[in-house]
Design a protein around this nucleic acid. Sequence first.
DNA 1: CCCGTGTCGGGAACCGTTCCCACACACGGT
DNA 2: ACCGTGTGTGGGAACGGTTCCCGACACGGG
Lengths: 362, 362
Amino acid sequence: MLSPNERMVASERTDSTVSGISEVARRAGVSKSTASRALGSTGYVSEDTRERVARAAAELGYVPSTSAVSLATGRTKNIGVIMPYLNRWFFAEVLEGIQEALLEHGLDLTLYDANPGSEGRARIFDDYLARKRFDGLIAVGLEPDHRELERLVAIGRPMVSVVGSGETTTLVAIDEEDAARRATEHLLALGHERIAFLGGRPDRHWAQVDRRRLGGYTSAMEDAGLGGAIRHIHSDVTLPGGYAAAVNVLGDLRERPTAIVATCDEVAIGAIIAARRLGVQVPSALSVIGIDDHEYAEMFSLTTLKQDPRAQGRAAVDLVLAHLQDPHRPHSILRQRATMVVRSSTAPLAPDRSAAVTDARA
Amino acid sequence: MLSPNERMVASERTDSTVSGISEVARRAGVSKSTASRALGSTGYVSEDTRERVARAAAELGYVPSTSAVSLATGRTKNIGVIMPYLNRWFFAEVLEGIQEALLEHGLDLTLYDANPGSEGRARIFDDYLARKRFDGLIAVGLEPDHRELERLVAIGRPMVSVVGSGETTTLVAIDEEDAARRATEHLLALGHERIAFLGGRPDRHWAQVDRRRLGGYTSAMEDAGLGGAIRHIHSDVTLPGGYAAAVNVLGDLRERPTAIVATCDEVAIGAIIAARRLGVQVPSALSVIGIDDHEYAEMFSLTTLKQDPRAQGRAAVDLVLAHLQDPHRPHSILRQRATMVVRSSTAPLAPDRSAAVTDARA
DNA sequence: CCCGTGTCGGGAACCGTTCCCACACACGGT
DNA sequence: ACCGTGTGTGGGAACGGTTCCCGACACGGG
């Protein structure tokens, strides 16, 4: 803790420290422009003066004013990040990845939380983004509608999406459909046939991601000649959502699937918790597979298709920087590969399912 | 999706739209200064010209340059938020609350993720904050060390902390000690005596919060004459951390407590999951109480002391704005009250503990 | 009729940088 | 001896706003 006195001193020092580059210049005995050149890396400056200026700047604790720099250069040294949720694992991880990478490049991050359907979201698109407080924009799982996309384009700043469609912007994502397909095929290979897909709900805010994953599941089932067994259990894409949906489904013994492909690990874990509650043994009576490799996946021994959202965030930063450097760089799609992590939430189909159930009750 | 053609148009419009206030002025047939006055709310402008200017601005899609405005006014219309974690429930919720409130005030948010012990954290304090890209700062659960606090003070911008100590800055938080004390007293009232505290680890990064909560637990125990039964089980303050710690503790039948005060809901839920795994019935064989009222609390029927992090975030915004308006406003402490939410993870101590255990195995 | 007072508008300074341009100087080649 | 050319430096105009100051004008009261 600082004593009030020390605080006073610190604050006074601060006040005198608002000195601009001209004070630095004066102290170093050079002109403003020379000081600017010395501090920056452009133009001719003798090694001697460069040092003098650097010393003067250090002594004064000089920090260039970001607004002045932005005004003069047209660069904000700031990247905007817009995402619909903050409190879901994937989004928070991506955000941390972005933040890490930006930190290394000396860039700031301004955050826009655009909750689907909120009035705030409209304001962000109409007012906030137009302010262009950033050099580039990263949209994470945004899934903009037509009007929103229009706005985004109108900003005229490089933009990259993490998760979503890559038709209009550069994209980094895993192949959602492929991931779900592989998850399903894993279960098929284990002998399961009554495989249900858990997650998503075809309504206004139904995420494209979940739709794509459902698509991957569907085509895997069809390819296996199990088109008739396709079953989509609606669920909020959250852990409690998965739990609630699974409780209902698993409660009905006759309708119960032997395996579940969850749209993401949160939902999968919800299902596992539901199964435990109902005495349905995982994996002997029910196999569950997710997508993500969530922080909790290991603790629940969840088999999953691992993706690395942090790396996606970092990649997004690299890409937006590349676009910044070369404005004519064409859009691109960076697909990261999801890798299967087999733990023990999946197992071969038990020869007699009812036996397994009995086991669970023993 | 926009066709390439439409995109072109939009982008061209954008390019011509970079028009400044002088273009607006010209179009409205007034001078720059009049236009500025008309758009802002200061000074005398006739209703007539105000309208003409407004129309011209609208037609041109004029958006003032934030850097120019900041440079001229000294206000960035931006609030910095610095926090050590993004992917933990409490922090994400506070952040959303802050974001919501800022949105209503037309302010932007720039985020600094200062993970304790990371090199990034040092850079943030040394370089990033000094840039003063913000009018005010909100620190969430930051717990700065001496050097960091010095930096923070040196910035010379209003600052409010959410969670932490209010000695140097304005603070909004619940009374951590009181919350833990009440949690403990709840268990005591139910007849429990072997009550353990779960969470935190006295090491370099041990959060003050957990220390305070441990303190509340300790004094409640002492006041009940149970000082000898005090037991602090170390655990990472995460759900898997609580799980891992609880698994070990509950595995030992003789040492097993009859009730657990967890430092937060994530840890509490981890403990509940561990108990279920081990066949220890909650609440008949083990009562668990947490602090937070986490998103998952209801799903696990967790008794807890509810706090409202979103509201804390909003309150922090109000406070920082108040400090901005009145620079001489003294530091203050805003204590939010934690309210007990009784669900069914806590119950009276079973007369015979071993009987309860047998029950669980039945 | 003259003069405050209340409105309205314009010119110019200023915010703190960058950057273009002009200039000075030293040096080597012709 | 003279003239590029390559370096180092300073002056000053942007960048895009806000805001102070002052002049013009209308109006009503003394």
